[in-house]
Structure formats: structure tokens, C-alpha cells
């Protein structure tokens, strides 16, 4: 008698529990879908994000698809590492689930990250950061090497100026060193300068390793300097200069892809295990090739 009742109650209980579970699962799923839009904060290192418009579009696309909300944060002073760390602290305290950063100084940013009371995965753009949840960047050494090889093809004698603004952009260092190695091996003398010099005796070749510097150099060239410029970047301004011949060749990769991958990685770091990221593929684009179909797709975002 007693046993029968227990069996019955167990069976009914199990059935009831199954009903409840099947009813609750959609509820839980819905809660997860709606309730938890991940909040991802994006820390730039510029005072405005006009250099990062395409990157932002990629990020927004990823956020849209993966259920995240983005907060874009700029610095009040360009490349202010302290301010970036302060922003990092504020965002993590403000409840950011993940961070995407273009680090001013990866090491000190990492130190700031470790000082946080809460753990917050951080994906970096442009350069790798130790302890980060991943870096979305091309292989910086390969960028330097390929760009130097592009220069080698055109080289007709003279010294090469390597514009070194690595103080502002940490990824420049490895690109520059790689380029320097390639050039030295080819027996070309090169000089590192922080800014373009006033005197232009025999310096007909200039290499820049960062979009901002590339654009600046291109502008200077338009102002009357004459030199062949090899740079980095894919913004509209740079492609315009490339088309007009102010820039001989650029190493370009898709900012859109970078933004997308960064947010995707950040979301993945929160929701699942972060995957190891492949370095972004980049290509060397010369001025005359910019309208090749593949380069069109790379350089020009589809905005209707």
C-alpha cells in the first residue's frame, strides 16, 4: 500500500517536474536572450573616434548579432595612458561585462586590469596585451616586413626614414623593427625619426607604421614635400591619398573585420571560452591596384 503510493507520487512528481521544466526552459532562454544584453565598453586612445568609424561599424554589427551593447569611450587627451586606466576602472565598476581597448600602453593597462576587484575580460585592438582575452591585430612583424619588401621593389637609392611614433602607438615598435631588419639585410641605410625633418637632402623614402602617422605624412607630402610614402591604414583619407599618389603603398586590413572580431571575441570571452585568434590578414595595396575587386572589398566599406 505504502509502496504503491510512493511509486505513484514519484511517477507523478517526475512527470510534473518534466512539465515544469519544459515550461521553464523557454522562460529561461527568453530571459537569457533579452535580459542579458552584454555590456561591452570600448576604450579608444584618441580624443574622438573619427579614425575608427569603420571599426565601430564592425563592432556594432557584431554587437547587434551577438546581443551586446557597446559603450564607446574616448580620451580627453590623446594617448593618455593614465586616463585610459581610469576609464577602465570606471567601466568595470560601472558593470561592463567585457572590454575592448586600443591600448595606449599595454603593460600599464594590464597592470590596471589586474588591480580591478572584478575580473573583466579585455580584448585589445592593434597590439597584443599579455593577460588579455585576445588581441585583434595583424601580425605586426609581418606588416613591417611586407611593407619593407614593397619599398624594396621600388627602391632606387637613398636613405629610408622610419617614422617612429611608438610612444603613442605601441604596435609601431614591432612593425618598425621588422621593417628595419628587412631593409638592413638589403643593405639600405635607414634612420628612425620621431617626426619628418625639415631638411630633405636625400631622404626620398618614408615609412610610417600607423594610420594616423601615415595620414599626417601624406598631408605633409601634399604640402610640398616630395618623397615616396609607405604606410599603414585603410581609412578613406588614406585611400584617397593612395589613389592620388601621395602614398605609394599601404599595408591594409579590414577595420570592419577587426571591430567585428574584437567584439565577437569579447562576447565569447564572457559567454564561453575565448578562442585563440588568428592574426588579421592584411595585404599590401599599391595606389594603382586600389580598384582591383579584392582591394575594393577591403578598402571601401559598403554603405549605401
Amino acid at each position: 500500500m505504502k509502496k504503491n503510493n510512493i511509486v505513484e507520487i514519484v511517477i507523478l512528481g517526475v512527470l510534473g517536474a518534466l512539465v515544469v521544466i519544459t515550461l521553464l526552459i523557454p522562460q529561461l532562454l527568453r530571459d537569457r536572450e533579452n535580459g542579458s544584453l552584454l555590456s561591452v565598453s570600448v576604450l579608444f586612445r584618441d580624443t574622438d573616434s573619427s579614425n575608427w568609424i569603420i571599426t565601430r561599424q564592425g563592432m556594432e554589427q557584431a554587437a547587434d548579432e551577438l546581443g551586446a551593447e557597446l559603450r564607446f569611450l574616448n580620451l580627453t587627451v590623446q594617448n593618455d595612458s593614465r586616463e585610459q586606466e581610469e576609464l577602465l576602472r570606471r567601466e568595470s565598476e560601472g558593470g561592463a561585462d567585457a572590454l575592448v581597448a586600443v591600448p595606449v600602453d599595454p603593460e600599464s593597462l594590464y597592470m590596471a586590469l589586474t588591480r580591478l576587484s572584478t575580473s573583466c575580460p579585455m580584448v585589445t585592438l592593434e597590439c597584443a596585451m599579455e593577460g588579455g582575452a585576445g588581441a585583434v591585430a595583424p601580425d605586426n612583424r609581418a606588416v613591417g616586413q611586407e611593407l619593407a619588401r614593397a619599398l624594396l621593389e621600388d627602391w632606387s637609392g637613398g636613405q629610408v626614414v622610419l617614422l617612429d611614433n611608438s610612444a603613442a602607438c605601441p604596435e609601431v615598435e614591432s612593425r618598425l623593427e621588422a621593417a628595419q631588419e628587412v631593409l638592413s639585410q638589403a643593405g639600405i641605410s635607414c634612420v628612425r625619426l620621431a617626426a619628418l625633418p625639415e631638411a630633405w637632402a636625400d631622404k626620398k623614402w618614408v615609412m610610417t607604421f600607423e594610420p594616423g602617422a601615415t595620414r599626417q605624412a601624406a598631408d605633409q607630402k601634399e604640402d610640398g614635400y616630395s618623397f615616396a610614402l609607405y604606410g599603414v591604414g585603410s581609412s578613406t583619407a588614406i585611400t584617397t591619398s593612395l589613389e592620388q599618389g601621395s602614398i605609394a603603398a599601404v599595408a591594409a586590413w579590414s577595420d570592419y573585420a577587426a571591430g567585428y572580431l574584437a567584439v565577437e571575441q569579447a562576447v565569447r570571452a564572457v559567454r564561453q571560452r575565448p578562442q585563440d585568434l588568428e592574426p588579421l590578414t592584411f595585404s599590401i595595396v599599391r595606389g594603382e591596384d586600389i580598384y582591383a575587386p579584392e582591394n575594393q572589398k577591403l578598402l571601401f566599406p559598403v554603405t549605401s
Binding site: L12, L15, V19, T22, I25, P26, L29, R30
Partner: peptide, 21 residues
């Protein structure tokens, strides 16, 4: 329509539950 599917499943289970009851 996994929601629909689950709801159907829930109804099914519920009717089994009622039958058992």
C-alpha cells in the same frame, strides 16, 4: 519555434500527467 515545441512537449507531458493522475 523551439518555444512552441517545448510548449507542445509541456502540453503532452501535462496530458500524460493528467492521465496518470
Amino acid at each position: 519555434s523551439s518555444q512552441l515545441f517545448l510548449f507542445g512537449l509541456a502540453l503532452l507531458l501535462f496530458s500524460i500527467f493528467l492521465m496518470a493522475f
